[in-house]
Design a protein around this nucleic acid. Sequence first.
DNA 1: CTGTTAGCGCGTTCAG
DNA 2: CTGAACGCGCTAACAG
Lengths: 355, 355
Amino acid sequence: MSRAKRNTNRPARPDIHAVARLARVSIATVSRTINHVATVDPRLAQRVWKAIDTLGYSPNTQARALVSGRSHLLGLIISEITNPFFPELIQGFEDAAVENGYEILISSTNYDPQRMELCIQRMLERKVDGVAVMTFGIEGPLLERLAQRDIPLVFVDVAPKGPLFSTIEVDYYHGIREAVQHLAVLGHRRIGFISGPLHLHSARERQSAFLRAMGEAGLKLTPAWLLEGTHTLEGGIAMMQRLLDSGEAPTAIMTSNDMTAIGVLHSLHKAGARVPDDFSVIGFDDVTIAQFTLPPLTSVQMSRLELARCAVLALRDRLEPQPVSYVPRYKVQTRLTVRQSAGLPATRPFRRANG
Amino acid sequence: MSRAKRNTNRPARPDIHAVARLARVSIATVSRTINHVATVDPRLAQRVWKAIDTLGYSPNTQARALVSGRSHLLGLIISEITNPFFPELIQGFEDAAVENGYEILISSTNYDPQRMELCIQRMLERKVDGVAVMTFGIEGPLLERLAQRDIPLVFVDVAPKGPLFSTIEVDYYHGIREAVQHLAVLGHRRIGFISGPLHLHSARERQSAFLRAMGEAGLKLTPAWLLEGTHTLEGGIAMMQRLLDSGEAPTAIMTSNDMTAIGVLHSLHKAGARVPDDFSVIGFDDVTIAQFTLPPLTSVQMSRLELARCAVLALRDRLEPQPVSYVPRYKVQTRLTVRQSAGLPATRPFRRANG
DNA sequence: CTGTTAGCGCGTTCAG
DNA sequence: CTGAACGCGCTAACAG
């Protein structure tokens, strides 16, 4: 009498027993059918599916996770969701995850290593099957601790060693080279670069890609035009200000991310300079809002959707053994998106209205 | 031998039995201690906590959910994560949820009712305890189907009836009135309004708040200046264009959301008009990027953090009976954020450069 | 190929 | 106030 009679008038969610009863099979057969075990008699399977359909049954994820040890949950750790870089990444991650039968758990660190620990803690408690750490600024010691956990982890750029770690490489050079060449073709010779905080691996990568591209284009570098920003609007404003104050400014400015570029735009606007007539500006990331700036920002894009998809695949590959023929390649490209913030260099040097 | 000896050399996650053994109590006592049942002997509780600490034990969420029927997961359904309105909402939702001991499951509908169904399906399968539907555009028939499910739901603006439904009211009028008055004080008499798609409840609310505020400020309404937009950049561009083409344009334009306002800014820029010298513009939502536009956008803000917090509380109140003294009030305010896109009205009507 | 059975880890009765 | 026993819904052995 334990199970058979429970308040029967309430339309409780049907469980596996209900399906089994209706299909006149055992619960094991129902389980096998659902999990697509090949050795089920098609006729029985048919009955099971029909029963499932008429009852509106869907398996209890919790129970399934409890016994199988696999939650089909993927964690996604990002820096800050209000940073325009991330929403698209999340979108892609969600889509790719759902496509592969996973659900996602997001949390953001707000650039706080301690909070990052909490995020991971929470994820582990929820028994995620794997975690994508997409914060672009993970610290050494933290990595060490992560390495202890025995769940698959995927990172961007940084490549820690460990049997459960994967890395997604970003080919910064490709897009940045396109940008430099774009400027060179327009006639620019004097190009400045405002980098991100150089303690970030990804910021360093972008800067060196820029240096390399300049060299290859045969353009001379002016050290005074190589500035370290902060990947923020304020940083962009300040650094552009400095460039303007220095007397001799470049005709084009490239930046390490779009927020910096937008800061540059603000600085220029305030100084009375016009873009692209007086200065050309090229950003990096091609964040959604880049198309809404005045003028719309020419920017190097790294597909966040692609990045997210790679991350999901990297985790899936650890979780579900793939056929040997499958050779994973976790690499994402960057490309130049041309809009209207870069144009021909000014014929005469810009002079500030109020100076 | 069933449980006692399982591969013992691996440092498996400790379970409740391990804690019980170490604390020399039964697993029931451990369970009670963790769940803060008041009737546990403090001395035993002490031992239990110590054991938990030394073992680094944390309860298995899956098992707990399975047996208790409560997953401590909250669903959040939004329209589109790349819409700048939502990230901050998510942030607030996450924070509030975690504060209250919940984790969140997000999914986005992309304005597709069918996808919305899938989202809900997924959430139900994951056994979320409640769902916040923050899409600002839910359809009647869908609501009907939702009503069947017996889990708490919370909505914005729209107030379906049902014992498990909650509604968060937004006081659009407050902030919109501030905006109209702000313009009136600056000297504007000719104010236009570009609404959102009027089939959306929230768009209608905003529009009627505007109409009411105009009336109260003693300002006359010009029907030709009351346009229906689409809550998109393109809509803003098109409607502003129409205003400009009409020969007699208002000196100030208010919009139903920030994307529309940014479209207006673009339209104006293209026409050679300056903001706020030639036209004043006020947006709605005060999205993060409003501070990055040129000029920074004056906008009516509705605190997304507050909204999110309300949503979490509304769900929690259904889920965990609150003390009778607690009177919930799910209402969020709107306020004007003054930046630089609204100023004194132009002394002479704007004439297009190319016209 | 199918059914029976034993837990997954924990909350919760019900005796003590 | 505590502990033993049961079962949440399901998968994975094992028997038939």
